[in-house]
């Protein structure tokens, strides 16, 4: 089934996918590669998410962490935090999950062509950004500087460490990683992620920034980017809210007027800056 056909189908219908490969990332986090049962492909844009269903347990929104240039497999990186993600985590290769999607707004990678690109990620927030990183690196010549700033709690909790090393090894990409605390042996930065922004070497007047991580990390991260001179209209964030349908019909993900599932999850920061300030919105 291709994307056009998918849109014609009922968006509440799930499509079965087979788990091709499971890779443990962190103590509580794993990555699954999925392929559609009965063949076919899955096209998506970086930053979009799927509703993943596991038999009898229910559905949960999970952002896609794979390469948008490779629609032959669907890749999700999942942390075991609730009943449903636990249930998905208990599945093994060869078993099936249900997929609805892709849903939501993408990271505007193409709109950022011609500018410097700053990607600021915290914790598991690197997963929804990875498709944008793949796409940016595949189009590296279309950007000025490309800077990836990543913060994690400790060295053991750094997501995708091998890829970070690989990206750091490229001469055309700056990768800075910091952790909140570290034991000797860690040769990198220690300190909050916001500190990485200073001296990252981008031109703030011609920079687009993508920010993803826990809400509080994003708030402080954005503060640092604005302090560095990036305009709020050039900063994009990915939001998280409760979602039951993914298509704007169940109401749960409202954040003021926007539905995070269909008007987001990626928002231009200046359009939601006020909402960030309101508690319990």
């Amino acid at each position: 089934m291709n994307v056009a056909m998918q849109q014609l189908a009922d968006p509440m219908d799930i499509r079965p996918f087979r788990i091709e490969k499971i890779r443990k990332e962190l103590a509580d986090t794993f990555t699954m590669e999925l392929v559609p049962e009965g063949g076919g492909s899955f096209a998506f844009k970086p930053g979009q998410f799927n509703m993943l269903y596991t038999f009898g347990a229910g559905e949960v929104p999970i952002s896609i962490s794979g390469d948008p240039a490779d629609p032959s497999k669907l890749v999700h990186t999942i942390r075991r935090v609730g009943a449903i993600t636990q249930a998905i985590g208990n599945l093994s290769e060869g078993m099936a999950v249900g997929v609805r999607g892709p849903f939501g707004t993408p990271w505007p990678v193409e709109e950022a062509f011609g500018s410097d690109l700053v990607i600021l990620a915290g914790g598991l927030g690197l997963a929804p950004l990875r498709p944008a990183i793949y796409m940016a690196l595949a189009n590296r010549h279309r950007f000025g500087k490309v800077v990836l700033l990543y913060g994690s709690r400790s060295p053991a909790e750094i997501l995708f460490p091998k890829e970070l090393e690989k990206w750091r090894g490229r001469f055309d990409t700056k990768v800075r990683v910091t952790v909140d605390r570290a034991e000797p042996g860690w040769g990198g930065h220690v300190g909050v992620v916001t500190k990485l922004v200073t001296g990252a070497g981008f031109d703030p007047m011609h920079t687009v920034a993508f920010v993803c991580g826990p809400e509080i990390m994003m708030r402080y991260g954005i503060q640092a980017l604005e302090q560095a001179g990036i305009d709020s209209s050039s900063i994009y964030v990915s939001m998280e809210r409760n979602m039951k349908c993914g298509i704007g019909l169940c109401g749960h993900c409202q954040w003021g007027a926007p539905f995070v599932c269909k008007d987001g999850p990626v928002f231009r920061f200046d359009e939601v800056a006020d909402a960030f300030k309101v508690r319990e919105l």
């Binding site: 038999f55 009898g56 347990a57 749960h252």
Partner: peptide
């Protein structure tokens, strides 16, 4: 119009069902 999903299996664990039901903010 808000709703939520309820997913359940029967006692055998072989059959599952998905129900949409009204929810409240």
């Amino acid at each position: 119009f808000c709703s939520t999903m309820e997913d359940a299996t029967d006692l055998s664990g072989l059959k599952a069902e998905r129900t949409r039901k009204w929810d409240s903010c």
